[in-house]
Amino acid sequence: MDLSLFPNAIAMTIDEFKAWSHEVVDELGRSSGIKRLVDKATAPIWSWAQRNSLHPLHFGIACCALEMAAASAPRFDAERVGVVYRSSPRQTDVLLVNGWVTKKLRPALRRLYEEIPDPKWVVAMGECAISGGPWYDSYNVVQGVDTFIPVDIYIPGCPSRPEAMIDGFLKLQEKIKVEQQGTFLDD
């Protein structure tokens, strides 16, 4: 616990005091084990809620975007597993990259990724997003989306079928179930 400022606490500005007190409480929770206890108790609840309401960003890039649309259509109905598309990145938790990423798009996609609040996951759908796919010798295509954002699930196929996409989301649910992030996500 950092108590170096303790005798001078009375002379702190309000912002300094907030930062200092937050640090003290944080340290107290961690060292006493309360944080871990709360994490352990709440993690199954959060994990259950997160994995059953995966909201990907409504962001179609290329061929796989049509399969993404077909997956939410009546025959495949991805909404059964909780996949509902949202148009604003602030309301989503999954970034579904479904196509090749060009050098002109890369900054925009990186920015979209950063706009999504934590916890967030990235799914690379189709060969182009995984490794560049058929455009391996292009001068303008980024060879794989994992070169600039971390990817959790890869769905192969060119284009991936809707069943494959739903299967990928089920795999992502398993991953969230195993990860079990608690209330204090930074731990």
Binding site: K104, G132, Y136, Y139
Partner: peptide, 20 residues
């Protein structure tokens, strides 16, 4: 089609495409 700051003309025959 390309960014404003690109310096090359890609379809010219003396421009070699990247990749493998």
């Amino acid at each position: 089609l390309l960014d404003e700051d690109v310096q090359f003309f890609p379809m010219r025959k003396d421009f070699k495409s990247g990749g493998l």
